[in-house]
């Protein structure tokens, strides 16, 4: 399948930054996701899943794959006054999965905007972060994102470029210091 040039550039930059990018069709996604989950985990484990932001029906698909792969799913719960995580279960999760609306070709960055139930912490606490997007989410750069933003900025915008890393001991690059050591980005094309 052919990809727009801007998406090709995103893939190159994201891979250079250490993100694993994989292009899949909607039909292939459940199989590929199950493969990834099976390869990296020994269930039963917990997966943290964003509650909102997903395109119609996708969250349910992902949830079904997680359950059939032996994962317990934890999501931000909607209560009076808004969403909240079960902190203990979030902290125990080994995988986090969210939908990412926008990503940047210029630097290979994911753009995570805050909002009720968007589940940003699922991309930060677990060792493995899995992110899903579609082809139309690709923007040129951060300036482009700000230009398209309507009104005031959300309470937080996080750019994620590759895994968490440190060079603080003898400038030796080491992954997964506070955040995930692995970031997998599935592009639905």
């Amino acid at each position: 399948m052919s990809k727009p040039e801007i998406v090709e550039r995103y893939i190159r930059m994201a891979q250079a930054a250490g993100t694993d990018v994989e292009c899949v069709s909607g039909a292939e996604l459940p199989g590929r996701l199950a493969e990834l989950l099976g390869a990296v985990n020994k269930p039963p484990e917990i997966a943290a899943l964003a509650a909102s932001g997903w395109p119609e029906g996708l969250r349910e698909t992902v949830e079904a794959v997680l359950v059939s792969s032996g994962f317990e799913v934890t999501m931000p719960r909607k209560e009076q006054g808004g969403y909240s995580w079960d902190r203990d279960r979030l902290a125990a999760a080994s995988v986090g999965i969210v939908w990412c609306e926008r990503y940047l070709a210029d630097t290979g960055s994911l753009v995570l905007a805050s909002g009720p139930g968007m589940g940003g912490l699922a991309t930060l606490l677990p060792e493995i972060s899995i992110v899903l997007s579609d082809a139309k989410g690709c923007l040129e750069d951060l300036a482009d994102f700000f230009r398209q933003m309507e009104g005031a900025p959300p309470s937080r915008i996080t750019l994620v470029t590759g895994p968490s890393r440190t060079g603080d001991i003898e400038a030796t690059m080491t992954k997964g210091v506070h955040g995930p050591g692995k970031v997998a980005h599935f592009l639905l094309l």
Binding site: Y83, G120, S155, R156, T161, G162
Partner: peptide, 20 residues
């Protein structure tokens, strides 16, 4: 070209949000 994380914060968490 960019660091792994850039966090851009505008005020505390808003109504209904679970992060921040």
């Amino acid at each position: 070209a960019v660091s792994s994380y850039v966090t851009v914060i505008t005020g505390p968490r808003r109504q209904g949000e679970e992060e921040g």
